[in-house]
Amino acid sequence: MDLLSQQFVLPGQVLATSHSETEGGFLRGHGTYVELVPEGGEDEGDDDCGNDVMVGGMAGVSKKKRPTAWGSGGGSAQGEVMHTDGSDDKDKDGEDEVEGQTSKGPQRLIASVAGTVERVNKLISVIPLSSSVYTGQVGDLVVGRIVGVGGSRWKVSLACSPPSSSGSNGAMKEGQLPLSGVNLPGGVQRIRTSEDVLAMRTLFKEGDLLTCEIQQVQNDGTLILHTRSLRYGKLENGVLLTVPPSLVGRRKNHFVTLKGLKTSADAVDEDGEGDVDVYLGLNGGIWIQRTVPSEWEEAIRSDQDERAPLAETLQKLRHRHATTRVSRSMRERIARVRNAVECLRLVHCQISPDSIEAVARASLDAGVRVADMLLPENVVKLTEVTRQ
C-alpha cells in the first residue's frame, strides 16, 4: 500500500480497496467504515480496460478511470487510493479480518469524517480536524454541568450546555462524579454515610456548573471525575463560554489570571477588584470570573481561628464571591475577555492565555467598545496579532 502521510480526506471518500476474494488488505480504524464493492461498480464506463482504479472518489458514485492523483505539483496526492490484494504485508493470521468478519469479496474502506489519514501497518484511521466528542485523559481539567443526581454519584455533562427539555445535550461525553470524589463541608475527612447520600443536592444539584479533574478512564470510556483539590468546585457569578475542544491545548496550568485590562480612566474598584480569572477546560468549556481580592481572604482569616483548615477559608471565600455583586467596570472587563475568546473561536485560532490577552489588549489599544468587538471587520483586525 502506498499512502502519503497527512493526506486530507472528506466524508465518503474512498481510502483503500481490496481486490482479494478471500482476504482484505487493510484494517478499519477510527473515522472509517467498510463496504463491499458493488459488482461492476469499479468497472462502470471502463469496458475497454481491465484496470479498476478508483482515485479518491466518493462512495456510491459512478467511477471512471482517472489518473493516480488529482491536481499537479509534487507531493499533492489528494484523492489517491490505496489498492491491496492482501499480500503486501505478511502479518499474523486474522489481521485481515474487519470487525471480526472475513470479507466475502472486494471491499473498500471509506472515510466517515473529515480529517487526515493515519496508517500503522494495515490499520488505517482518519483523525478528525475538529472532534465534536471530547475524549478525556487522566489529569485533564474539565468544566461540566450537573445533569443528574443519584446512586451516590452525580452525572456530569461535559458539553456545558444548559439542560434542554428534550434531554439532549449534544454528542459530548458524560462523566461520573462519585460522592467519595468531593470535599465535604468544612474539609472534613471521613467515610461517606447514608446521610451524606441524602444531602448530595446541598453540594451540587442539577444545572450547577463546576470545575473538576478526570481521575480515571474506564475500559468502556466512562470518565470518573473528582473535585478533591481545593482549586475545584462549584462555579458561580461568572460567564461560561463553549468552544471546540480542539482549540484548547494542554498546558501546565489551566487556571490563569489576566492582569491590567483596565483603561487609563478606570481605577481599582472599591472592593479591591481588578483582575480577571480564566479557567480553560480541555473539553471546550471556558469559565471567566473576577479574581477574588486578597482583602477578602485577610478579612476572613482575621475573623476565624488561626487553626481553621484552609478548606473552610476557601469555602467562605467562594460564598462571598457568589453573594457579592459584580461591579459595572468588572462586568465590562469580563465581557471584554469573553468577546476576545469568541473572536479567537470565530477565526479558529488556538485559545491560550497569551492569545486571549493579546486580543483583549488590542481591543483596548484600538479603542474598540466591548459591544463592537464581534463585528466582522473588528474580529479580523483584533486577531491579526495572533497571526504574526
Rank of each mutant, 00 (worst) to 15 (best):
L258V: 03
T324V: 05
S62R: 12
G285N: 05
R153T: 07
S125Y: 01
S161M: 08
V337C: 03
E195F: 11
L4P: 10
T32Q: 11
E306Q: 04
E118T: 06
L10K: 09
R201C: 06
Q6E: 14
T84R: 08
G139C: 04
D365H: 08
A114R: 00
P67Q: 04
A366D: 13
L15G: 10
A114F: 00
I124C: 07
S112C: 11
E357L: 10
I214F: 10
D88V: 11
K65P: 01
C349H: 14
E174T: 14
S103A: 13
Q216A: 12
I351D: 06
Q289K: 15
P11D: 07
M172S: 10
G105W: 15
R251C: 05
D52S: 06
I356W: 04
T386Q: 12
D43R: 09
N121E: 14
D88Y: 14
C343I: 12
Q350E: 11
L129E: 06
M1P: 14
A340Y: 00
V368R: 04
R231M: 03
N283G: 09
K63S: 08
S161A: 10
T68N: 13
V385F: 08
L346C: 06
A267D: 08
E21M: 14
L10I: 08
T135E: 14
E42Q: 09
S132E: 15
T323Y: 13
G148A: 13
P11G: 10
D2G: 02
L317P: 14
D140E: 06
T84E: 09
A322K: 15
R320L: 12
S130N: 12
S112G: 11
L280S: 04
H254S: 04
A111R: 01
F8R: 11
R331L: 15
E97H: 05
L36R: 10
L15S: 04
G175Q: 03
V276Y: 13
V239K: 05
V55F: 00
K381D: 13
T17V: 15
A340N: 05
L3W: 14
V370W: 04
H254F: 02
Q289E: 14
D372V: 02
I351Q: 07
V278Y: 05
V37G: 00
P11F: 01
S161F: 14
V98D: 08
S18K: 10
E312F: 03
S352K: 13
G175C: 05
R361W: 07
Q101K: 13
E95L: 03
D277Q: 13
S194W: 06
R108D: 07
N169V: 07
D266W: 01
A111W: 00
V126W: 12
L225N: 03
A171H: 14
P244K: 02
G29N: 03
R333W: 05
Q215M: 08
A299Q: 13
R320H: 15
K122E: 04
T313S: 03
E384P: 00
Q189P: 10
A366L: 10
V256T: 04
R28F: 00
P178Y: 02
E297R: 07
P11N: 05
K63W: 11
N183C: 06
L198D: 08
E97W: 06
M172F: 02
L184R: 01
K90Y: 13
R333Q: 09
D85C: 07
T324H: 12
R108E: 13
R201A: 06
T383H: 11
D277C: 12
A358N: 11
G57Q: 06
